[in-house]
Design a protein around this nucleic acid. Structure first.
Length: 302
DNA sequence: TCTTTAACCTGTTGGC
DNA sequence: TGCCAACAGGTTAAAG
């Protein structure tokens, strides 16, 4: 479900509610939600209880909540969240009824907003929460969007910066593509090359840039790569402004509300419908165990 | 070393 | 109505 715009909507919704809040208690209802956490549920709950959350940060599709240190010499930690395919982070009132696929609940107290429940619900259990150490960024730039600290959770270090990150390097991206024989769509989905882009926005960006998804990355001209970067950023920013893409109740913001970008899709999910540019029917093909949508006339193979 | 596949899960939808 | 295959926004270990 959630790609960069959806995760950013969640981060932005969470930030004012959790920044400065104290964790009163944590409840793990399903231990499968801790697959990225080293340790058991009891340890997770005990470690979090009493800690103060300093904010909400994001890189690509990863989200984290840095925790204030207990002692000056202690290593910094954060709660790392990944929503996987169907994860949600919801803000609820204290004692609110258990959500259908609720996996973890954090009860918090905010100095201004009072007590709240942060609920992690996840139908398919591909998402997860974990407590992880924060490590310095190699380039000294902010670790992600939302906080100025130059650190990231250790399990996020292999994730590339996302294209909306001021420290993202267009030149490094161009160099990476020049070394790849893989199809450009596969590379766009590779979070170690560029993060935040998933199946929906990859299809949308390639459609906008008029690039066939199976074009070998290294076959793209510099001009084409630059065009692609412009369109990736444009698509992500527009989706963010519209609150993300929702096809059903699966993707929602922290208040359970859907986004509107599904109405703005030009290629994804529009199999057989006319291309908004040329009128030719959009084609759907199976690709890397998922589907690609593109216009066979506008997006010719390089 | 780099690249691709398979597996992890639950739920919904559409064809027969 | 029921059954079953196909499919769904992602990541990662294992195999190639």
């Amino acid at each position: 479900m959630p790609e960069l715009p959806e995760v950013e909507v969640v981060r932005a919704g969470l930030a004012p509610a959790v920044t400065g809040a104290t964790v009163l208690g944590a409840t793990v209802l399903d231990e499968r939600a801790l697959t990225r956490h080293t340790g058991d549920a009891a340890g997770f709950e005990a470690t979090l209880t009493g800690r103060v959350i300093e904010g909400a940060a994001r890189r690509g599709k990863f989200l984290w909540l840095p925790l204030a240190s207990l002692a000056a010499d202690e290593s910094r930690e954060a709660v790392v969240a990944h929503l996987g395919m169907s994860g949600q982070l919801l803000l609820r009132t204290p004692g609110a009824a258990t959500e259908r696929h609720e996996r973890v609940r954090l009860d918090i107290a905010h100095p201004v907003h009072g007590e709240l429940a942060v609920v992690f619900a996840d139908q398919r259990t591909f998402g997860s929460l974990a407590i992880d150490d924060l490590v310095p960024t190699p380039d000294g730039a902010a670790g992600g969007y939302g906080l100025a600290a130059a650190s990231v959770p250790s399990q996020v270090t292999h994730i590339a910066r996302d294209p909306l990150d001021p420290a993202f390097s267009d030149a490094a991206f161009r160099r990476a593509l020049a070394r790849k024989d893989s199809a450009i769509k596969r590379v766009l989905l590779d979070q170690t090359v560029i993060s935040g882009v998933g199946n929906i926005y990859a299809d949308e960006s390639l459609w906008a840039a008029r690039i066939h998804p199976e074009t070998p990355a290294r076959a793209l001209t510099t001009r084409a790569v630059n065009r692609l970067l412009v369109e990736v950023r444009h698509v992500l920013e527009k989706a963010l402004a519209e609150g993300g893409t929702s096809f059903d109740a699966q993707y929602v913001n922290v208040n359970g509300q859907a986004g509107y970008f599904a109405h703005s899709l030009n290629a994804y999910g529009r199999t057989g419908e006319p291309c908004p540019r040329c009128g030719r029917p959009i084609v759907r093909v199976s690709f890397t165990n998922r589907s690609s949508h593109f216009c066979p006339k506008c997006q010719r193979r390089a």
